[in-house]
């Protein structure tokens, strides 16, 4: 065996040994230590009433018992209309979000907007949109437009900007430079480069993002009624306030079915398009 052949496996062993430098190992141990400390601290200081904790399993079983039998008849009287409203909120919110996210995404993509300040500003918008939960957005828009589905749709839209904008910016940054260069060399103006250079490249990703977000928004829009922003959450809130647990169960069942159908639908469309 020549020395060269000998060296190769040894190098691998050597690399394996040095896979983690002392600093990396230290960083890992630090992470473990902090994690354990955080858990211990949380357990010791969290404000939990012990009686509640002990009582929880019985209470949960009791709740399920009161939910049975499910009030199926309630669907036609009290659920169908708000369900349709929920779907409107989710769909319209997604459409609005797509429109609003495009400029922010363009601003955030470093290969399109070549200003670090503008990129950071766009990132700030995106992070803010994602960090504020749709329920909080709903509270804000209920304060602005009054209770109802409109506030819900806007809440869904503003919550989705961050998600859509972030993924869109990433898709834009992953586009091939070559075709863009070719359009620049042809003297194309900015708008034409966007439409004929970038858009065809990000279109599949954009459709995928839209469908994915719509799927999420169907789930999210189901809770908005809890703060008065319309949709099926209103029916849930009403039934709960009157302790009509068989109706609560029916609402939950409806949400479950719609969520599952939405997921199947999205998977089907994605497979057909992409």
């Amino acid at each position: 065996m020549t020395p060269a052949q000998h060296a190769a496996p040894l190098a691998a062993v050597d690399r394996e040994w040095r896979r983690f430098s002392p600093r990396e190992r230290f960083a890992r141990w630090l992470v473990y230590l902090v994690a354990v400390a955080a858990i211990v601290w949380s357990v010791r200081t969290i404000d939990v009433i012990p009686e509640f904790l002990a009582d929880a399993p019985t209470q949960i079983v009791d709740l399920f018992q009161r939910m049975w039998p499910v009030d199926v008849a309630h669907y036609r009287r009290g659920i169908h209309d708000v369900l349709i409203e929920t779907l409107h909120i989710a769909t319209l919110g997604t459409i609005l979000a797509l429109g609003l996210a495009v400029p922010v995404g363009l601003l955030a993509a470093r290969n399109i907007t070549r200003s670090r300040v503008a990129n950071q500003f766009a990132q700030l918008i995106l992070v803010s949109s994602r960090s504020v939960n749709s329920l909080v957005w709903a509270l804000v828009f209920v304060a602005v437009f009054g209770p109802g589905a409109l506030a819900g749709a806007l809440a869904i839209a503003f919550r989705s900007i961050g998600f859509v904008g972030k993924l869109l910016a990433e898709a834009l940054e992953e586009t091939q430079r070559g075709p863009i260069e070719a359009l620049e060399a042809a003297g194309a103006p900015w708008g034409s480069i966007m439409l004929k250079g970038y858009w065809p490249q990000v279109q599949p990703a954009f459709i995928g993002i839209a469908l994915f977000r719509w799927d999420i928004n169907v789930r999210e829009s189901a809770v908005l009624g809890l703060v008065g922003a319309g949709g099926i959450g209103v029916a849930l809130d009403d039934a709960m306030n009157f302790f009509q647990w068989d109706r609560v169960a029916m609402v939950l069942l409806t949400i479950l079915v719609v969520v599952v159908i939405a997921e199947i639908l999205v998977t089907w469309i994605r497979r057909r398009i992409i």
Binding site: E181, A182, A185, A186, G187, K196, Q201
Partner: peptide, 18 residues
Amino acid sequence: ARRRIGMVFQEYNLVERL
């Protein structure tokens, strides 16, 4: 000025999906 100067690229640089 650029539109008066055509360019042909090594990697063709076509917009693949058009």
